[in-house]
């Protein structure tokens, strides 16, 4: 295995992305929940609230409600690992490490394939 120290700079970026991404996602979810609870007319039972498909999410952005905010917060969390892989691709590329640039590109492709199922 190559020296771990070489990827020091990438480590710092990845670590920041992870921290900011997860913190931001959690914060947005908290805001959405708070907004939802402050709305009048909530019954005693929890209504079913499935996530909005990507295609309709864009339409919802015109009239954002608490559920949309929670949805966006969850998506923010879900996207964080993908951003992490993108940073790995870039940093391996900058290090001219072809093998690992390729490996992380394949991982990225697999992830994007999975995201695509959500777009369909």
């Amino acid at each position: 295995m190559p020296d771990i120290e070489n990827t020091g700079q990438a480590n710092i970026y990845i670590s920041r992305v992870l921290l900011v991404g997860s913190g931001l996602g959690a914060g947005v979810i908290a805001l959405g929940l708070l907004w939802f609870l402050l709305q009048p007319g909530n019954g005693n039972t929890l209504p079913a609230a499935p996530v909005t498909p990507f295609a309709q999410l864009a339409d919802q952005l015109d009239h954002v409600g608490p559920l949309t905010v929670i949805n966006l917060g969850l998506l923010l969390l879900m996207i964080t690992p993908i951003v992490r892989v993108i940073i790995a691709v870039v940093s391996f590329f900058l290090e001219r490490d072809r093998k690992y640039t390729l490996i992380s590109l394949v991982v990225l492709a697999i992830l994007l394939f999975s995201v695509r199922t959500a777009l369909a």
């Binding site: 499935p50 996530v51 993908i82 697999i110 959500a118």
Partner: peptide, 25 residues
């Protein structure tokens, strides 16, 4: 673990298995 979980999370998302009001809290 996060990358692995993300790979399947979007599949559950696309099936509508994720409920906002359960997942949030």
């Amino acid at each position: 673990i996060g990358v692995t979980a993300a790979a399947s999370a979007f599949i559950y998302y696309s099936r509508g298995d994720l409920d906002l009001l359960v997942a949030g809290p």
